[in-house]
Design a protein around this nucleic acid. Structure first.
Lengths: 139, 139
DNA sequence: CAGCATCCCCGCTGATACTG
DNA sequence: CAGTATCAGCGGGGATGCTG
């Protein structure tokens, strides 16, 4: 795979590119869910940010993950080819996780999205306030 | 909207841009979840693809949504300022939904991500096969 | 240290039925 | 047509405890 992520060539009719996303059993939907899942986003982001890291480093980095969910998320992403797990055969186990090129592409996209939401949070918050006012009456 | 969504400017240290995404109570995480939720993605995509649409049109378009989930999703996205709901006061109710500029930006990003996963599905599937073999099969 | 197994809860989700 | 209300089921996700 190359390097740039190539996004937003959205003048092409959307339905031509992926007509099936709207169908209930679209397989790529599952992949997307993994990638944008609660912890998936953060694992990818952390790995993109800091590069190769061990389990405990990730756990410390990502506020609020349980061991279970971290392990589960890592497994899923490994299975999807987004990252590589390398277990060094030493006495205190030492396992490192690294993004694959594929995973890096995903991570960049996800990260961009996360950053975008962060940047536009004020607008969202304003919209919410307006909406709530409209509903609850005077407020 | 201008043209490109500007993604993958990831040479900037990630943590500088949004240090708080990793904290458990990051507000933008919620917005992200709404946007990339199962039906959120599809609603945004449908609206980006076809423009303003009514409730029933969306329902028909998006395979497998229940009325409840569609209504819920639309409400959430409206509250977040991603789309506008316009109810025409006619006897058989007629309600139209349209993306806001903000929502259109979101939709493009989400759509790009969806498309990316679609394009790279073969790689993911291959990775999965390899992973499963490593675990069950010959391994 | 890494991570699997178990238990358990609650929130998302869908099916059904009712209203404006 | 476009919702809201209610109920029931399933699975995500956390806490705990145990292994290599």
């Amino acid at each position: 795979m190359s390097e740039s992520v190539k996004v937003a060539a959205a003048d092409t009719p959307l339905s031509d590119l992926a007509p099936d996303v709207f169908s209930a059993q679209c397989e790529s939907r599952g992949v997307l869910e993994h990638v944008v899942s609660r912890w998936g986003v953060l694992v990818l982001a952390a790995l993109l940010d800091q590069g190769t890291q061990r389990f405990s480093a990730l756990r410390r980095r990502i506020g609020g993950v349980s061991e279970k969910m971290l392990a589960q998320t890592l497994q899923t992403l490994e299975r999807d080819g987004m990252l590589v797990r390398e277990a060094k055969p030493v006495v205190p186990p030492h396992v490192e996780y690294t993004l694959t090129p594929l995973g890096e592409q995903a991570a960049r996209q996800v990260w961009a999205l996360a950053r975008w939401t962060g940047e536009h949070l004020p607008e969202v918050l304003a919209a919410r306030a307006a909406y709530d006012t409209r509903r609850n009456g005077t407020a």
